[in-house]
Simulated assay, not measured.
Amino acid sequence: MSANWTDIPYDGWRDTCAALHLYTQIAGKYKLARTPWLNHSWHATLYVSARGLTTSLVPDASGVEIEFDLLEHRVVGSAADGRKAHFALAPMSVAQFHAHFLDLVAQLGGKPVFHGRPNEIPNPVPFQDDHAARPYDADAVTRFFRALVTVCCVLERFRTGYIGKVSPVHFFWGSFDLAVTRFSGRRAPLHPGGVPALPDEVTREAYSHEVSSAGFWPGGPAIPFPAFYSYAYPSPDGFSKATPLPSGAYFDDKLGEFILPYEHVRTSDEPERALMAFLDSTYQAAADLGGWDRAALECRGGEPLRPRPVDHH
């Protein structure tokens, strides 16, 4: 078992995870408010960094970057004009975090104005009105970050085996998951919407084209354990009956997705191979049953310093 696959049982940090989810929503909504719209909401996502999660450069003031430093447990803001500001990640309410965040953006010269209510959460409470005390388990957060880095590296490798349209490996703060998405190139049927606290027009734009999407959750109300998932939209006939790899993966009828518990991967003899088997087998089921042109869309996985051969025929 690889030491990089850290143990992150959801029950042990459930309340801290819920708090961190809301904190990343606040940073994400700031980025969303300042950044021109990019297809499928890719402009709003966070990215795994060497220390945690980052907004990357936000086009506000001189240029602003917000990073959740999950090693030293701080929110660090940097501006392109040299200004810096930070505050500690510690037990506090969402309202307190929100106030600290507004002040941080202002110190960087940015405009701290954005939508003030969470998305993709049932019965959302405005950030400034959420005064419930929230814990902060620093050790659990760091272990979660270590897992994100390890998973991100596998997802990045999986991404290289596709020359069709494919998303970055990015972190969606609304659903609190790390994801990568492949596209067939064809338009999809209009999505029905209905995601809690998310405008249908956003959901429909996100799923405007056929996708096979996979990613990683730390756990949540729907699945109370860390897990990998894979789904297709639209879901082709027979998709739920396909056989995923490795053993331990299964189709969740309620979610409409394939699930592979993180613990199954973590404790396997070859965790990276187990996860790649899940990613490959579930994508192949979506592509084969959906009639994707796999020969035109796929390629050999990328390797350092080796350009892909060009087919002139």
Rank of each mutant, 00 (worst) to 15 (best):
Y23D: 09
Y30L: 10
T150Y: 00
R159T: 12
R273G: 08
L198T: 11
S167I: 05
V310D: 04
D137E: 15
T45P: 01
S78L: 15
S247G: 11
P168W: 11
H170L: 14
V125H: 10
G63I: 04
A277S: 11
L89D: 03
D137L: 14
R266C: 01
F258E: 09
S208D: 12
D103V: 10
Y23M: 13
A106Q: 07
R300L: 06
F114C: 10
A249S: 14
D293L: 08
L102V: 05
G219S: 08
R34A: 09
L53I: 15
R266F: 01
A99Y: 05
M1L: 02
Q128V: 10
L289C: 03
A140P: 08
M92V: 13
L305I: 08
H312V: 03
H191Y: 10
A232P: 00
R182Q: 04
Y10A: 07
T24N: 00
A27C: 04
P112W: 06
P271G: 04
I26S: 00
S62N: 03
S247I: 10
R51F: 10
N39Y: 13
F145T: 15
D269P: 00
E272N: 05
G12C: 14
S230V: 02
L155N: 02
D139G: 14
A19F: 15
S230C: 08
R143D: 15
A285P: 02
F172A: 06
S2P: 14
G291M: 04
G164T: 06
G63H: 04
L102T: 05
Y231R: 05
R74K: 12
A295L: 11
E270S: 04
E270V: 02
V64L: 02
H312E: 02
S230D: 02
E270R: 03
A85V: 07
D253K: 12
P199L: 08
G220F: 03
S212T: 13
G215Q: 14
L32F: 07
N4S: 14
